[in-house]
Design a protein around this nucleic acid. Structure first.
Ligand SMILES: [Mn+2]
Ligand SMILES: [Mn+2]
Ligand SMILES: [Mn+2]
Ligand SMILES: [Mn+2]
Lengths: 219, 219
DNA sequence: TTATATAATTAGATAAGACTAATTATATAA
DNA sequence: TTATATAATTAGTCTTATCTAATTATATAA
């Protein structure tokens, strides 16, 4: 098994590989983890030696099959623990990420599957992110944002893109959670602010940045 | 908060302080943790600097109030997680200790109390060890062993002293668990072997060492 | 194309926590 | 009491994971 640091790097690289299109660079990883680029270069060398990634100046960092398998398992554990913390221990959705950040590293061969079963095989975590299945398959993730919608459209909140507690607490205050219905009433041309109705209630105005961090689904 | 190593040392020292009478030495800690005595001496210095222990050549190592508070909390978390693993995730009692050894270090102010509530405030862990309460109070631990009993006595298995998987698996095989009723039928004078009846069934013979590792309660 | 900014890499330092080997203390036995 | 075994301590080494500072490479703009 791998160290806590190795696992966190794998997860960061996996995350970057999901934002497809761009190549994964030391700088990119450094930004995600908040580590110094020099440290990242060291770890890239180490992970490449262990055959968890390939590194090529041109192509950037790529997870190997082994590396991806491991990364997916860590993400699976992270998201399952988040469900546990919210549903069984009564935490709120802005409190769970940091705890899951530690829990995801607990090592036991059957733990993830047992937890999965105990939680009755949830497909999405409390932030709407897909929970990889035991076989490695990942349920579909949402990609349409509230800001993408046409005026007048009603939608269901499916996930949040930003999972910082600042954003999540703001959503709690606005009474927005997963499955909340939102109607986009108007887009203000000046700054792309959005006038919305939350769960059928009165109008509220939110910023474009806000709208880009809410992932939605048809109703 | 403290590092994983510091916490493991605190817990080891706490454990030794429960086996009262003896003073706690570097050698003793070294034996519990399997670390080199030189490493132990380093850590003793560090913990003393942080005022978690006092160290005196004559008196040996003593936990300070702060140190004990921390140690008890780690033990509390360890035992609560053990209950969780057994009752909620369906592990057997020989599989849970090592996982709890990692889980006990998860850092969050409200986690232990939430877990306690979720588990409905258990008083003893799956090995019969008392779970410290939120206020630091520790339920009574058992101290009479099966080997202590007079011939003829019936008792309830309250706890096990040895929690190695070898011993626990042996007990599974013998159909002995917490709350099993055992009657001590005969003590063999030659080697102090014990002839017992487990749960009212046929006679079995076990060693003295075995009997010393079963803690019992009146019926 | 040349200058400049940004990124990648190397070299060297540091801290934590472990180890081995050597030394000094202390306890136990002859 | 003296010899011997055991324990405690010190000194120095190693590994992991980080950092800073310096250097080299690459991309971008003038
Ligand atoms: Mn993590
Ligand atoms: Mn999440
Ligand atoms: Mn531990
Ligand atoms: Mn236990």
């Amino acid at each position: 098994m791998y160290t806590l640091s190795e696992e966190n790097y794998l997860k960061a690289i996996y995350r970057l590989s999901q934002e497809k299109g761009q190549k994964i660079t030391p700088k990119g990883i450094s930004d995600v983890l908040g580590n110094n680029p020099a440290s990242v270069v060291d770890m890239i060398r180490k992970l490449a030696e262990k055959q968890l990634i390939d590194y090529d100046k041109k192509k950037g960092v790529r997870l190997t099959i082994q590396g991806e398998k491991n990364a997916v398992l860590i993400v699976r554990k992270h998201r399952l623990w988040e469900v546990f913390l919210l549903e069984k221990l009564g935490y709120q959705w802005d409190e769970i990420h940091n705890i899951a950040e530690e829990l995801e590293h607990i090592k036991d061969d059957t733990l993830a599957d047992r937890l999965d079963k105990f939680l009755e095989f949830p497909e999405y975590d409390p932030h709407g992110d897909p929970i990889p299945k035991a076989n490695g398959k990942v349920p579909k993730s949402y990609s349409v944002t509230l800001a993408n919608l046409k005026e007048g459209t009603r939608c269901r909140v499916a996930a949040v893109r930003d999972t910082s507690s600042t954003f999540l607490q703001y959503l709690l205050k606005l009474d927005i959670g997963i499955n909340t219905t939102i109607q986009l009433i108007e887009k203000i041309p000046f700054d792309s602010s959005l006038v919305i109705s939350i769960g059928g209630k009165d109008k509220t105005t939110v910023s474009q940045k806000f709208g880009e961090n809410i992932l939605v689904d048809g109703i």
